[in-house]
Simulated scan of single mutants.
Amino acid sequence: MESRNYTQFSDFLLLGFAEGEEWQPLIFGLFFFMYLITVLGNLLIILVTILDSHLHTPMYFFLSNLSFVDICFTSTTIPKMLVNIQTHSKVITYIDCITQIYFVILFACLDNFLLAVMAYDRFVAICYPLHYKVIMKPQLCGFLLLVCWVISALNSLLHSLMVLRLSFCRNTEVPHFFCELDQLVHLACSDTFLNNIVMNFVAGLLGGGPLIGILCSYAKIVSSIHKISSAQRKCKVFSTCASHISVVFLFYCTVLGVYLSSAMTQNLQSTSTVSVMYTVVAPMLNPFIYSLRNKDIKRALKTFFEKETRKDPIFLRLKSCCRLKDSNPQRKKL
């Protein structure tokens, strides 16, 4: 009972990546740069999908929400790590750690569900193109998004409450750059059997369920594409879901890589390094994947930057100066 009371006032130490002080400025600069790229890239996707009326479709509605979730996901972990490096402190309070666990699980789960919903959207668009607008109505899109948020919030609340029942020993060191659920459960002094049962069951249900839905959707999509006789039309249809396939592959491969490596190795420090792939690298690369492989996004970005360039007073001043120089008669004589 004494150890349980102590958890109300205990602090955790986030060990991060490197023990040596000489590595800290490099780590700070690298993660600050990746965080900046992630936020700016995803904000640009959100802004373009809002401003361009051609992108007011279910596919880009879910894409803008995925970008928002990716910003929130990285913002849950990276700023705290950067502050700790800057202040030369590794401490995170018990309450902050539980809060971080809640939001990490929330946004990771949302990522998972949104990718499944986007796969369903592509399935309807390719397999039932004539009924697409009837099926994917704004009401259905809003309902699917609400379901994703509700299930994710309840799931993260469940895991947070399960952690609250645990008691921890003194000087608890987390070999990670954020409070990760599995590692925190392993550090508990009390019985964690129920926590492990709940974690494995929920991971199989909420992790495997959307993945099976994605695989089934693309199995139907591939079957529909094979029925198309024209090779050019096949490529055109497949290109509409190429970006989504790339993001799904990146997300699930990095997540599976982290948990397979944690199961196969006892080095928790190396597991934290691998987890950077799905917590930082994947959200950072998503905007690039969609902007580089998607013609609609590229066109919208080009239109957006052209409009901003016309509005720029510096650009207008330079343009007017060039016109004055060209109209100068003395210059023409020379």
Rank of each mutant, 00 (worst) to 15 (best):
S230I: 04
V237M: 13
G204K: 09
I212V: 13
A242E: 11
F201W: 09
K220F: 13
T240V: 07
Y218G: 00
F249V: 14
V198P: 02
C241I: 04
S239H: 15
A242H: 14
H244M: 08
I221K: 08
F238W: 14
I245Q: 03
L206N: 04
I212F: 09
F238S: 14
F249K: 12
K236L: 11
I214V: 05
S217Q: 02
I225M: 04
L205W: 10
L211K: 02
K234N: 03
I245M: 12
G207I: 07
L211N: 01
A219Y: 15
K234D: 00
F201L: 13
S246N: 11
G213I: 11
K234C: 05
Q232N: 10
I228G: 00
H244R: 03
V237R: 13
C241E: 02
R233M: 08
I221V: 15
L205Q: 01
G208F: 11
G208D: 06
A242D: 06
C235A: 14
S243W: 05
G207H: 06
I221H: 07
V247A: 14
I245S: 06
F249P: 06
A242Y: 14
P210C: 07
S243I: 09
I221E: 11
C235S: 14
S246T: 13
S229T: 10
C235D: 13
V202T: 08
G207C: 05
S239N: 15
S243R: 06
S217Y: 04
L205T: 06
S243P: 04
I221F: 08
P210L: 05
R233I: 04
K234G: 02
S217M: 04
L205H: 01
H226Q: 14
G207T: 09
T240M: 12
G207L: 03
V237P: 07
L205G: 00
